[in-house]
Amino acid sequence: MPQSRKSQISLIATPYYHCVSRCVRRSFLCGQDIITGQSYEHRRGWVEKRLLFLSSVFSIDIAAYAVMSNHTHVVLHVDKKQAQSWSMNEVLECWHRLHKGTLISQKYINGDKLSESELLTLYETVDVYRQRLYSISWFMRNLNEYIAREANKEDECTGRFWEGRFKSQALLDESAVLACMAYVDLNPIRAKISSAPETSNHTSIKKRIQTLLKGRQPRNLMRFVGNHRHNMPKGIAYSLVDYCELVDCTGRCIREDKTGHIDSHQHPILERLGINTEQWLTLTTEFEKHFSTAVGSENMMQQYKRCTQHQRIRGMGKAKALFKKA
């Protein structure tokens, strides 16, 4: 039986989530339909552009993404604290970039004078909008509905384009976040549609490598901020260079089928994560196979189970095996 989204997403447990959306039947998001020969490759750009736009509107950061032929992967970080710090004007400006809002919210943005009762109504509306602006469900809704409308318009048809709901996995610790990011970034290599991370079109790893070569980090992706230290800034607590090197050597292992071998030694990031090379390769090739609603160490999985009041969570045994100290 499908679980409610509320029972899967708990910001108390973690702000990081891996979301996957798949097309229904033979619908093609991108790539080429081998039966008709029609190419949908241009739609990859639609998804990537929309994703990066939404990250500038919502209080949700994108840590990784990959646009595949009939599904998309995205690793999201919810910044509830930022959304709660926004002023009423900031909330309305963000929301109106996506939706028309109400007549009252439009009047306020236009500078028209509001009555006392209209102001009270507006305050309630802003509270609703604020919650939606850090909601993963609303983020994915604004991504998937937009792409579905554009695809149906192009195909001159109506009806469902995506499966009923997107799949989400809670990433409960740093190991799970890094492993999931690498799993997502390496999707094109596992699917044999790309031979290297830097040539994997419409992925976060390609965007990161391109800007890294210019000495920068992508503006619309969550930043790597280096190792843990005092007054830690917001971001992923590892070096971007280390991460790109790790994804590259992992990708070569996948292509060459050299199980358990990464550059003939344990990579520094894996040492800090407490994961050995065999565990890492299993995670980055079979991440969705072994876990359902949550991913992390056995201890973190137990905490998530209590927090979300689940009876049981699939993947507890794999969590114990794959996230133990190397």
Rank of each mutant, 00 (worst) to 15 (best):
S4C: 08
R5P: 05
S7V: 10
V20G: 02
S21F: 07
R26S: 15
R26K: 15
L29T: 01
G37P: 02
Y40I: 08
R44P: 14
L51D: 03
F53P: 05
L54M: 08
S55H: 06
D61V: 06
A63V: 11
L76I: 04
D79M: 10
Q82A: 08
W86N: 00
S87W: 00
E93L: 09
S105R: 02
K113V: 13
L120I: 07
T121P: 01
N144V: 12
Y146S: 12
R149A: 13
D155M: 13
G164Y: 13
F166D: 11
M181Y: 00
N187T: 08
P197T: 05
E198T: 07
H202M: 07
T203S: 10
R208S: 03
L212Y: 13
R219F: 14
L221Q: 07
G235K: 05
I236Q: 03
I236A: 04
I262C: 12
P268I: 13
P268L: 06
R272V: 04
E278I: 15
W280A: 05
W280N: 04
T282C: 14
E286G: 06
H290C: 00
H290R: 05
V295F: 03
S297G: 15
S297Q: 06
E298P: 02
K305G: 00
C307Q: 01
H310M: 15
R314E: 11
F323N: 03
